[in-house]
Design a protein around this nucleic acid. Structure first.
Lengths: 158, 158
DNA sequence: TATGACCTTGGAGTGCGCTCCAGGCAAGCG
DNA sequence: CGCTTGCCTGGAGCGCACTCCAAGGTCATA
């Protein structure tokens, strides 16, 4: 991960500081400047369907995406960074409505830092709770798997 | 019906060995023998709605529940045990269809131990993967929360 | 015995997160 | 030029896991 001093790549992310963290593992297909991806390229890169990418834009989960002269979407490296963050938030189980809220806050600028932080802190609490839940289920799964394994070994010996 | 040695409480669970693990933390409202709960008692105890309990039965996720002479459901401690297991499996994120499959295997008897074990082992793999995913998201959340906290401290100093 | 809370059923409705469709435009190729 | 491929849009449809409704029967208390 990164500390406060920023790498040259990160400094290009002028849209909002919020985008930076996605640069933890950038690995963009093309260098900044030649970064104009079609929707199917982005779909392949992110694993999301083109449908889903269009839908994300419709519901306000993507900042409005550049268009070619004929109106086709052209995604940038920054869009990829944003989608990477969205992917992480999606993995947390955060509802799409909350991600949209977060996107709104980002659009509104730096005076929303506090609310953004609160939103992410709530999400972190949710994640920690979910991990604890899952670890509780592991205890049961382990117990029952052991039971079945033991019962099957016993019946083979019989 | 059972093979391996069990505690007295566990010996009452004649329906299937699979119910045992739920007895890890029994704490039933009433002792066995006086265990005839109405649907709303079970709803209060489990946190599931009465609607959901009826629906579970309809789709085959509950063994058929006892009825009073007038046709009202009367749940037993064993039903509570089963619901406790179902609750754990639900927390794992296992799809309801898979839980129904597991319930079918339980109904079919001991010759399905192998498949039950395989189902639970797959579930355990899923859970471990999910925990890893969530821990990955924690790294991002921590990074961004720290960023916002730092930015706000900096602006307060300014 | 009357009132009101609780229970029954089959089936319809809801909210979420996509997923797909129809109809049409635009670019590349033989 | 025609064909294929890829993209566009608004809106409909889907799968999941509930959630609720209507219409009626039952139970406990006064």
């Amino acid at each position: 991960m990164e500390s406060t001093p920023v790498t040259p790549a990160e400094q290009l992310l002028t849209h909002d500081t919020v985008d930076r963290c996605a640069r933890a593992d950038p690995e963009h297909p093309r260098p900044d400047g030649q970064d104009r991806y079609t929707i199917s390229e982005v779909a392949a890169h992110t694993g999301l369907s083109a449908h889903t990418l269009r839908w994300y834009e419709r519901i306000g989960l993507m900042p409005h995406v550049d268009r070619s002269h004929t109106g086709q979407r052209r995604f940038t490296n920054r869009d990829l960074d944003w989608l990477s963050l969205v992917g992480k938030l999606r993995l947390t189980g955060m509802p799409v409505a909350d991600m949209v809220r977060y996107a709104d806050l980002v659009r509104q600028g730096e005076h929303t830092f506090e609310e953004r932080q609160a939103l992410l802190e709530q999400t972190r609490r949710d994640v920690l709770g979910r991990i604890a839940e899952l670890q509780g289920t592991l205890a049961v799964l382990n117990y029952k798997i052991d039971f079945y394994a033991g019962a099957r070994r016993a019946s083979e010996r019989a």
